[in-house]
Amino acid sequence: MSKKIVKYNKNIQNTAEEMNNTMILLFGLKLLYYYKEVRPQFSNGKQIITWDNHIPDRANCGPFFTTLKQYEHILKSGAFHCILFDGSIIRSAFIFDSNNLINHSHLWWPAPYNNESYIEEVTPQSKYEDFINDSNWKKRLRMRSPIRIDFDPKNMNDNHPLVHMHIQHQETRIHIDKPICFNKFVKYIFQNFYSSIDLDFRKWNLLDFSYEKSEIYGHISSRIII
């Protein structure tokens, strides 16, 4: 408990509260093995939400995308927000400049192994260790690509849509209409990759990040298509 309450802007606060609420909800529904409460922070004059041990440009992205090394690194360094019941990982980062969202990155890293049952007794790490050391790993291997959805106005160009999805390869960038909130990402993941799970999304808050003008990012082009 602290008497000093740092004031964050409304949007980052909403984003953090949305993430926390959803993770508590999923945890209660036994769809998460573990989650970490989100707290906004200040960084270089911006307000950000990110995962623990966020070290850019190491095993986090680039050539390591889709490699076991990346999954292992994220898992072992605790650089995630939550671990799903099947050992898959979700994490999200947001950067706000005042009340404007200027960057986000959502990642779902599916567990590389077939999970027959909910992780309960063993930890995700030991489950992973068990898998890679198993002489029978070929039978247990499950090949699924991570999904990353980024909102990255700084690097926007013809081949780099403002909001895009990485799948299968680091240079794949599938156009996405507009920045999305944590709930929308989680909803997308569950609807597409866990469709047998009956989750009621009707009451989920969805934060709407939409920008009519892109001037703040230095682009003179017309409004971003939503």
């Binding site: 309450i5 606060q13 509260e17 949305e18 926390n20 609420n21 909800l25 409460e37 989920w204 808050n205």
Partner: peptide, 26 residues
């Protein structure tokens, strides 16, 4: 998350995430 309420003001004032109805119902 969009409108202050007594409960959410209280929660934020002690640095705790206010839960929404959906989460609380669960």
């Amino acid at each position: 998350s969009f409108e202050n309420g007594i409960y959410s003001i209280a929660a934020r004032s002690v640095n705790v995430t206010p839960l929404n109805f959906n989460t609380a119902k669960m």
